[in-house]
């Protein structure tokens, strides 16, 4: 039973990180209407910036986190200006392929500049752990979960309690209508897309502490984020939370209870994607 409880806790903690990555992706899908296949690459950029800050300047990733968030917000804004903006009205296929190309570009630029090795960040709290009764929780994991929860709280607060958030939701629901009542749609798009990138980068900082930084670290998180937003329904931000929890916990259960589960847990997201898509497409079938 303890093992089970421990597994549940581990899964839930992991899901905080997933929710952070996926909510950014969902924001871009929901507001801008773009499925950003390069989302994982902004995570990768965040992870590398955290590593660089730590290895070169000796700054703890948690301290550099706000700076990184702002920097990657800028990168996102630039991306929006030079590429995304030009395909907003193009067929879905073009949008998809454009962000896909962007992802390949960023990943390979990183490979070119930094090589394929993984870079680890060492922090004083890396090996720490919290004792909650019978359960033990890794310090960085708990920290990451706390940060993710705080950020998600801030995101939801912004979306539901501020003018900007209302504008975003208005644009998400009806672009033309939003335009007619005087909302600067282009600006809202820019902000939503950039925030989405910044969220990925923050997740990247956490990933650098929990795992490592590498040029390809983004892909697997992006894939899982896809699974989450597909399960939540494209652009559905609230659905992201429970879908992330489901993915995190399922993975943890597979890791604990399936023999050789470490290798198989990476396939859980795929079953979720397929399960959801098949179910949905056949329920939609008339």
């Amino acid at each position: 039973m303890d093992l089970f409880a421990q597994t549940l806790v581990n899964g839930l903690l992991q899901s905080g990180l997933y929710a952070l990555v996926a909510s950014g992706l969902a924001l871009a899908v929901g507001v801008v209407g773009i499925v950003n296949f390069a989302h994982g690459e902004y995570l990768m950029i965040g992870a590398f910036l955290a590593w660089a800050g730590s290895a070169l300047l000796g700054v703890d990733p948690l301290l550099s986190l706000p700076v990184i968030a702002v920097a990657v917000y800028g990168v996102g804004a630039l991306t929006y200006r030079v590429s995304i903006r030009h395909v907003l009205l193009a067929p879905e296929l073009n949008q998809m392929l454009l962000t896909f190309g962007l992802g390949i570009l960023l990943q390979n630029l990183a490979l070119m500049l930094l090589g394929g090795n993984t870079r680890t960040v060492s922090t004083p709290y890396q090996a720490s752990s919290l004792q909650l009764g019978e359960l033990s929780v890794g310090g960085p994991k708990a920290l990451a979960f706390g940060l993710a929860a705080a950020l998600l709280g801030a995101l939801y607060f912004t979306l539901y309690r501020t003018t900007l958030g209302r504008q975003m939701r208005a644009v998400a629901q009806n672009r033309r209508g939003a335009q007619l009542i005087g909302i600067d749609v282009d600006r809202v798009y820019l902000i939503a897309f950039s925030v989405s990138c910044a969220l990925a980068a923050v997740a990247g900082v956490l990933v650098s502490v929990l795992l490592f930084a590498s040029p390809t670290v983004g892909l697997v998180f992006a894939l899982k984020a896809f699974a989450i937003i597909v399960m939540a329904g494209l652009g559905n931000l609230t659905g992201v939370l429970w879908a992330s929890a489901l993915l995190g916990v399922s993975e943890a259960l597979v890791q604990t209870y399936v023999p050789g589960g470490g290798g198989w847990s990476d396939a859980v997201f795929f079953l979720m994607i397929f399960g959801t898509l098949v179910l949905r497409s056949y329920r939609g079938a008339r």
């Binding site: 190309g101 962007l102 992802g103 390949i104 570009l105 960023l106 990943q107 390979n108 630029l109 990183a110 490979l111 070119m112 500049l113 090589g115 394929g116 040029p215």
Partner: peptide, 10 residues
């Protein structure tokens, strides 16, 4: 050595 696939992204 690394990242020559950048061609494809570009």
């Amino acid at each position: 050595k690394n990242g020559y696939l950048v061609v494809y992204g570009l």
